[in-house]
Design a protein around this nucleic acid. Structure first.
Lengths: 143, 143
DNA sequence: ATACATGTAATGATAATGATTACAAGTTGT
DNA sequence: ACAACTTGTAATCATTATCATTACATGTAT
């Protein structure tokens, strides 16, 4: 299993806004950079918009940041594209046997620890900014 | 998306070994507790065996721990059941446009941060022992 | 009004998972 | 040796999620 690439595409989109400041980014041009279909980009743009990360207007070309660019973390994107539901990174086996004491209690016991692990990952994402990714890229490209 | 329930089933199996010390656990009896098919249990048992967490013999009923029970962490199980490949919790969009500087470099820049987040989650799993889960369950059941 | 953008729904291909069935291979006790 | 039972493992199927694609409605600007 793997977390949907919507996440990495979302990051890609936001990075492009900063890196292509001087040009107008359309879903078409972004799709070219990502190498996917424009409809896919538009769908993800919609999610980023709903999460108040970007501003997009129907009918008018171009994307802008909706909040201060350096303040956008990977966690913001991760949550925006809804790639993992709250406390559901790990799935617990659905139907334990109701007649088995163990079966009935494993779920509750394990759930708490699963949430702890998921939170550790998300806390780490919170510390990483889109700006960090973009700065890395700028450095690489300038070599 | 969600990480396969093989993980929680693997934990379930190991917990049963400790909780049912006095009885012989067969893939059939475990399958009843988990409420799934015995073949599913056998497959996961095979993975736990390969990772040297349990001892199972073809033809002979019963499972035993292969290493000291209190030393088995959730990370051990997680790795045994191969629910997430190394550094592939997050998937990066496959085919960036080779003509686009940004497309080509997003991957490398992002990968490093993705690995960091995955490692944070796995480090947390390392601190949680099967014994912790079992102790919680014993406490709950005794209420 | 035309040209072009975003928004969104429907469809299809692909892949992963879990359940199930079936059977080979190993062990034990008589 | 044989019968009964177990693990090991492969094949198949239904279900689900994702991504790509097509199509079209809706919105904006010149």
């Amino acid at each position: 299993m793997s977390i949907s690439s919507r996440f990495s595409v979302g990051i890609h989109i936001l990075a492009l806004i900063e890196l292509n400041k001087n040009t107008v980014n359309t879903s078409e041009s972004i799709a070219e950079s990502v190498n996917t279909n424009a409809a896919v980009i538009r769908k993800i743009m919609g999610m980023l918009k709903k999460a108040d990360l970007i501003k997009v207007q129907p009918g008018v070309a171009g994307i802008q940041f909706a909040k201060s660019y350096p303040e956008i973390s990977l966690l913001d994107v991760y949550q925006a594209v809804q790639v993992v539901k709250d406390n559901e990174l790990f799935s617990i086996h659905n139907n334990p046997n109701p007649n088995c004491i163990v079966g009935q209690n494993v779920q509750g016991s394990v759930e708490h620890y699963f949430n702890r692990a998921q939170r550790a990952m998300e806390d780490e994402l919170k510390t990483i900014m889109i700006k960090d990714v973009v700065d890395d890229m700028k450095r690489e490209v300038e070599l």
